[in-house]
Simulated scan of single mutants.
Amino acid sequence: MSTYTLSEARAHLGKVVNRARYGGEIVELTEHGEPAAVLISPERLAYYRQLEDSRDLAEAERVTAERRTGVPHAEVAALFGMAPDGRAL
Score class of each variant (00 low, 15 high):
Y48S: 06
E8H: 05
E52P: 03
A58V: 06
L79R: 15
L57D: 14
R19T: 06
A78Y: 10
Y4T: 00
E34H: 06
T3A: 11
I26Y: 07
E52I: 10
D53F: 03
L89F: 09
Y48M: 12
A20D: 01
D53M: 13
T5Q: 06
A88Y: 10
L6V: 13
T5W: 11
E25Q: 13
A78Q: 12
G70Y: 01
K15R: 15
S54Y: 06
V38W: 00
L6S: 09
A74G: 05
N18C: 11
L29R: 04
V71F: 12
Y22E: 13
I40Q: 01
D85W: 04
T64R: 15
Y4G: 00
P35F: 00
E43Q: 05
S54D: 15
R19A: 15
L51I: 13
L79K: 15
G81S: 02
R87E: 09
R44N: 09
T5P: 09
T3L: 09
E52C: 07
R87P: 03
A65I: 05
L29K: 04
G23C: 05
L6G: 10
A9W: 03
T5H: 08
H12V: 02
E34L: 08
T30A: 12
S54E: 15
K15M: 04
R67Y: 08
L51Q: 14
V63L: 15
A78K: 15
V71K: 14
A77P: 00
L89A: 13
A20R: 01
L39H: 08
S41N: 04
E34D: 05
F80A: 09
G86A: 07
E61F: 05
V27T: 01
E8P: 03
M82Q: 13
E43F: 00
S54C: 13
G81H: 02
Y22V: 02
A46M: 06
G70F: 03
I26W: 06
A9E: 00
G81P: 01
E34S: 06
K15A: 08
A58Y: 02
V27C: 00
R19G: 05
Q50R: 15
R62A: 15
G24Q: 02
T64S: 13
Y22S: 07
S2P: 05
D53A: 11
T69D: 11
L89N: 12
R21D: 11
D56E: 14
D85H: 07
S2W: 10
S7E: 15
V38C: 05
N18S: 14
D85K: 04
R62G: 09
E75S: 10
R87G: 03
V17C: 00
L6K: 13
G81A: 02
H73D: 13
T3I: 12
V17A: 03
D56K: 15
A77E: 01
A83K: 11
A58F: 02
V17Y: 02
R62V: 09
I26D: 10
A9S: 12
R10W: 08
D85T: 08
V17D: 00
L51W: 04
N18Q: 14
S2V: 02
M82T: 02
P72E: 06
H73N: 13
R10E: 08
R21G: 07
